[in-house]
Design a protein around this nucleic acid. Structure first.
Lengths: 342, 342
DNA sequence: CTGAAAGCGCTTACAG
DNA sequence: CTGAAAGCGCTTACAG
């Protein structure tokens, strides 16, 4: 590998000048332009790439980002893939290496935590499900001088920068889409009271209520249908099955995930009602499943790829001492046959 | 961050001893046991973690693995997630940082190639679809002293270590499973002649033929049904649709992916035949989709998580100068309702 | 305008 | 049995 010394020898100057020219870091002194030019040319010709370890050592940085990834999304949702794709692309662009930890439970988190807490990373990105019980750890981490950014639905705390998504708008967009297509009674698949994930669903519900209120001239109707339900396929199937057994009439369903939506689709049709002619269905995540169900599913994208890229950008800015603030992305409607028809 | 100097000061020895004790690297000399003990205790108490940049600088290593990931699997297959999960876990365990590049086309590969070729990585793991046209680049990379391992179905070249999967066994296991359950005419969804992915499907086909031959007393029957078909949902639906329109009778289908299998399921039932009573269906990948279809799909796991972990282990061994060889994992059958019934 | 020198934190022959 | 010293490749005050 070619070093500063090699370039210095070739051009006939000291390595100090070479370093300053290539790093564009010349204090208040100027270097003769022809020398600078010669250095830059030589560096390019010789294929010089700075040794990141040497740079890291002297700069007391590590060009490494920690990534704490709480597995999210029902399996198959594609959220994990999209998020990682965005993170890796943005990190590569900024010459940042990655130290990735996947975890699913607080215990797993604790097990791996030391590796990052004592590890040589300049900043940490937390992805997935927000845990209030991890807040002290995150705060402690910041005290050690590391930058922290989260990629959660909502900020963990007001002063921890987050790249979020407007969950109220998720609920609103989905419901509004169904109402615009002529639906009257739109079921909202909500969550069990005790679920840790209930926060974002609470906000989505607000969006559903707002859209329903708009459609009903100001106040939501009194016969609103909110059905508590887990995010997975089986829960969705059970919930909608019970509803239909009770002979409750509805003509639209806002599911909380695409897995749920596919369950609703299968269950509704199995019980003899047609999608989307009699019941329109929309999910959330815009996942690959949407194109594999026998009626393609409409969905709402939570923009994980884009948000992941942005989160890495913010993290790098924070590492370089800039002040960064939380951002909120708008969700995007992806209509397909399960609402539009063919 | 605590350094060797801090520990040396506390214990009252030179940093050389501390380094040798902690690294377990003492040449032919011995250190007094009580001193060694004191050093280890101090290191632990003070929470010492070696600065990887300093170590990297002097060792001329970088504790960084390059990861060239050709996106594989139909979206939703979960292959990408499982693979990354395995890689990240194994890399963390070995204190290796990651430099991850996702790509989908040879052009994208070329764009990112320099970053790794000139980059400071000790080894590179290639994942996904093997490209014969990348072979010269891989060989050149090895010449620069980097270790190389691939996570492909089959080795790119005989001397490049690969963690593969027995594709013949994939076809055999699937077919044999259907035959054992009483199927007589098992359709094999194959691929277009020109597809770049055709290699592994050719091997799977051998497994299908072998199983059929076994069932038919030594030689496969003459009315074998091999249907060319893309790996995605739409292709699967079209292929099986055409077959059924031609009134061709069959009672088993070995699909090439779970997406395809779900398409077959929907199409077969839409045309009035029951799964698994009249037609048994099995896919490949054991993806999350399998549990979201209205009849849960049987499938064959290609062991991506386990193989990914193993590939990282081999890569690290190779980096440390050990000779490593290709391995082949056996696929695993995951039977569900689409073949077994309820 | 340019260079010599110190130092980042570690490893490892080489002396004692 | 243990330490002083050189050196990995770079950056950055500090001299000239």
């Amino acid at each position: 590998m070619v070093t500063l010394k090699d370039i210095a020898a070739k051009v006939g100057v000291s390595i100090s000048v070479v370093s300053r020219v290539l790093r564009n870091n010349m204090g208040q002194t100027r270097v003769r332009p022809e020398v600078a030019e010669a250095i830059r040319r030589a560096a390019k010709e010789m294929g010089y790439v700075p040794n990141p370890s040497a740079v890291a050592l002297v700069r007391r940085q590590h060009n490494t980002l920690g990534l704490f990834f709480h597995r999210i999304g029902v399996p198959g949702s594609g959220i994990q893939e999209n998020t990682l794709d965005g993170i890796c692309a943005a990190a590569r662009e900024r010459h940042q290496r990655l130290l990735v930890v996947f975890f699913s439970t607080t215990e797993e988190f604790r097990q791996e935590w030391d590796a990052v807490r004592h590890g040589y990373v300049d900043g940490v990105l937390f992805v997935g499900r927000p845990h209030q019980d991890l807040l002290p750890d995150v705060v402690a981490l910041r005290k050690t001088g590391r930058a922290v950014v989260t990629l959660y639905h909502e900020p963990l705390a007001p002063d921890i920068p987050n790249v979020g998504i407007d969950q109220q708008m998720v609920g609103y967009l989905a419901t509004r889409h169904l109402l615009d297509l002529g639906c009257h009674r739109v079921v909202f698949l909500s969550t069990q009271k005790d679920a840790s994930s209930s926060d974002f669903l609470r906000r989505r519900k607000e969006g559903w209520l707002r859209a329903m209120a708009e459609a009903y001239g100001g106040a939501p109707p009194s016969d609103l249908l909110e059905i508590p339900c887990g995010l997975d396929y089986a829960s969705g199937a059970r919930a909608i099955g019970r509803l239909m057994e009770g002979n409750v009439w509805f003509d639209g369903v806002v599911a909380a995930s695409d897995a749920q939506a596919s369950a609703v689709l299968n269950e509704v049709e199995r019980r003899g009602r047609r999608v989307p002619e009699e019941v329109r269905i929309i999910g959330v995540d815009d996942s690959p499943i949407c194109q594999m169900t026998h009626v393609p599913l409409s969905s709402i994208s939570q923009q994980y790829f884009e948000r992941a890229q942005r989160a890495v950008a913010l993290l790098c800015d924070a590492i370089h001492g800039q002040e960064v603030h939380s951002e909120v992305f708008p969700p995007v409607l992806r209509p397909r046959t399960s609402t539009l028809g063919t």
